[in-house]
């Protein structure tokens, strides 16, 4: 197992190398550069030239790339042009909110998925199954932006259970502040995982060993918990993994509606200002996180199904 994890982490190196190169070149192909945009209306040709020189943008591309690799090696990931701070420092300031949101929403998604999928599968074709299907089809069709605002109006204004936005200071107030955004993300995730888990459960329920287990007199809890769920989980785990990877960088809209200090909004801002070092640094951080989530997904397979060996 450890060897497997190590191997996967080693594979990360060429992946990251490719990402740095692609990101570096694509950025330079975009119109606009950080010096011109930072100076804006005050930037005459002399000022822009001076700033470019200070930022090292006047160097040949290959040297800029080598400097970028050196910045990665040093761990600072370079220095943000706009914020004038090491990229790593900026990332570390924003990373906790993103990871928290990922974790909280994933927990909520799983907490919704397992019981609802079981319920749905057990009442296949019945009103409950239909109601769940309908509810989550509506959820998936709604833009998360809009859903977020509706939740705020419902659960923060009309029924003031939660604050309208913000991040909170300690653990308790953080849980309180981030429940609504985590719920919005979790609903989007659950609308996918409930469908996949439900059909997997139905497939497993039709298999012979379930009939055997029933014949041996296994109770509902044991039947579902020991025989059905572990065998049905695999497909949902991969859906969950893919969706969680998306949450890492794709929650800008949620961050905006709920005023959360996550990586997504920092990433968008950095692109608007062409803050090369910051965009490059964030891309690498996202890549590492996605690879780690994929790894965690694979490890979860092995946990859910002992027949799967990771080598």
């Amino acid at each position: 197992m450890l060897i497997y994890v190590f191997k996967r982490l080693v594979q990360l190196v060429p992946v990251l190398f490719g990402i740095t190169l692609a990101c570096f070149l694509l950025l330079r192909a975009l119109p606009g550069d950080p010096a011109t945009l930072l100076l804006g209306a005050r930037g005459g040709p002399e000022e822009i030239a001076l700033m470019k020189q200070r930022l090292g943008l006047d160097l040949p591309l290959w040297r800029q790339y080598l400097l970028f690799l050196a910045d990665i090696g040093s761990g600072s990931l370079g220095r943000s042009v706009v914020h004038a701070q090491p990229v790593m420092q900026l990332v570390l300031e924003r990373l906790p909110a993103t990871l928290w949101l990922v974790a909280y929403s994933t927990v909520l998604a799983v907490a919704m998925t397992v019981p609802l999928a079981l319920w749905s599968a057990m009442r296949r074709g019945g009103p409950v199954d239909l109601a769940i299907k309908l509810a989550f089809t509506i959820v998936i069709a709604m833009p998360s932006f809009w859903l977020g605002l509706i939740f705020v109006i419902l659960f923060a204004i009309w029924l003031p259970l939660f604050p309208t936005s913000g991040y909170g200071d300690d653990l308790l107030s953080r849980l309180h502040h981030t429940t609504l955004p985590a719920l919005v993300i979790a609903l989007a995730t659950a609308s996918l995982t409930i469908r996949s888990l439900r059909s997997a459960i139905l497939a497993v329920l039709g298999s012979d060993y379930v009939t055997t287990a029933r014949a041996k007199g296994a109770g509902t809890g044991r039947l579902m918990g020991v025989h059905v769920l572990p065998n049905a989980l695999i497909s949902s785990i991969s859906v969950l993994g893919a969706h969680t990877s998306w949450v890492i960088g794709g929650t800008v809209v949620i961050e905006t509606v709920f005023a959360l200090p996550g990586l997504g909004s920092l990433f968008v801002e950095s692109i608007f200002s062409r803050d090369y070092p910051l965009i490059q640094g964030l891309t690498i951080v996202f890549a590492v996180l996605v690879v780690l989530i994929n790894l965690a997904t694979d490890l979860a397979y092995a946990l859910a199904d002992p027949r799967i060996r990771l080598e």
Partner: peptide, 18 residues
């Protein structure tokens, strides 16, 4: 000085007294 990027969110927070 709080950061609330979304216009509707600012209005809602003002109404909620936050």
């Amino acid at each position: 000085l709080m950061v609330i990027p979304e216009g509707n969110s600012r209005v809602l927070k003002l109404q909620a007294g936050e």
